[in-house]
């Protein structure tokens, strides 16, 4: 089931934006460095929450969809156990759909 209004359904393949706002100036982001530019699978939608990137600066914070996205450990670090995974909460504006057949 796709959560009402959610862009990604469970099982969708997604890519995390390869963006590094901390290199451009003061910011507060909740997308850890190690998943940026990486490909994962949406586990489920987690609802919508005021954007922490705005809350951190006392700005009006529109709600953003949040997802649990699963990544295989090994491609992230080039090491580790082949079965192991990591589950990360990522906001929708950090996610891009992965075209069919993309790596």
């Amino acid at each position: 089931m796709t959560e009402a209004g959610a862009a990604f359904a469970p099982g969708a393949r997604v890519r995390v934006r390869d963006d590094w706002p901390e290199e451009r100036g003061p910011c507060h982001i909740r997308t850890p460095h190690y998943v940026r530019g990486r490909t994962g699978t949406v586990e489920r939608a987690l609802g919508a929450f005021p954007n922490p990137e705005d809350l951190a600066f006392g700005r009006p914070a529109p709600r953003r969809r949040l997802y649990h996205v699963r990544f295989d450990q090994r491609p992230l670090w080039n090491e580790g156990h082949p079965r192991d995974t990591v589950l990360v909460e990522i906001f929708e504006h950090w996610l891009e759909p992965l075209a069919e057949g993309s790596p």
Partner: peptide, 12 residues
């Protein structure tokens, strides 16, 4: 056994 690490990055 799959070890699934849960990185608690946001609102949950």
């Amino acid at each position: 056994v799959e070890v699934r690490v849960v990185d608690s990055t946001a609102d949950y």
